[in-house]
Amino acid sequence: MNVDRRHFLIMLPAAAIAWKYVLAGTPEESPNYKMSDHWWSMLIDIPKCIGCGNCVRACALENDVPEGHFRTWVERYHVTDWDMVNPEVISPDGGKEGFPAAQVDDNGKYFFVPKLCNHCADSPCTQVCPVGATFISPDGVVLIDQTYCLGCAYCVQACPYGCRYIHPEKKVADKCTLCYHRITKGLTTACCEACPTGARQLADLKDPNDPIHAFLRTHNVQVLKPQMATGAKVFYNELDGSVR
């Protein structure tokens, strides 16, 4: 009964067509995607993050991230009330396998901060690339042309957030693409797909119907290191002042 139903459903034209584009992988075959209609960003809801590491693992599987390097990672902050500006931070293996249990601590608070490329609108990394191998796409995603990158690592130095690394085999800069191969086909990013609590939400700032707009209006939302004036587009709900 169930099997029959599945076979029936997979023959449904709509579903079949959707999946065909997903598999085809070429933008020409993503018929309804227009770069100028989008301006991608992400929302991180800190109170929802449980530090399970699902996003880190999903990212590594989806994007073939080399061992010991991270396109996204999760940090656990421990902030004590007597030293607010010097938190104790850990991120064992980028939080890939979760975190050790924390004991109740009357002196401070704990919280998790998922990190990824901020896809800055005024990105310092694309500014310094000597050859134009990294750039902001017309839909607001900071990408790397790995066939053009020299591997000089100037962009790695220029990123204030530590989001870039040199790929140990390809010898070129590498970082989060905001799952560009997915979002251009109507899917969400691998990290958002795998997040069990909805702590990560892909958002399109150019889409007037995106829930991000209502969220930004009604919540206490910040970006990381605002003093860097990078135009960061990863928004954090309830971000603690000690986070950097």
């Binding site: 959707a18 598999l23 933008p27 042309d145 053009y148």
Partner: peptide
């Protein structure tokens, strides 16, 4: 589009997908 190789965008968009997305799962399940 800017000071970069425009074709790179399409190449990056063509990377293989590993997570099918829940909507795909739900068509059968």
């Amino acid at each position: 589009y800017g000071h970069y190789r425009a074709a790179a965008i399409g190449e990056i968009a063509a990377h293989p997908i590993h997570f099918a997305g829940h909507e795909t799962c739900e068509t059968c399940h």
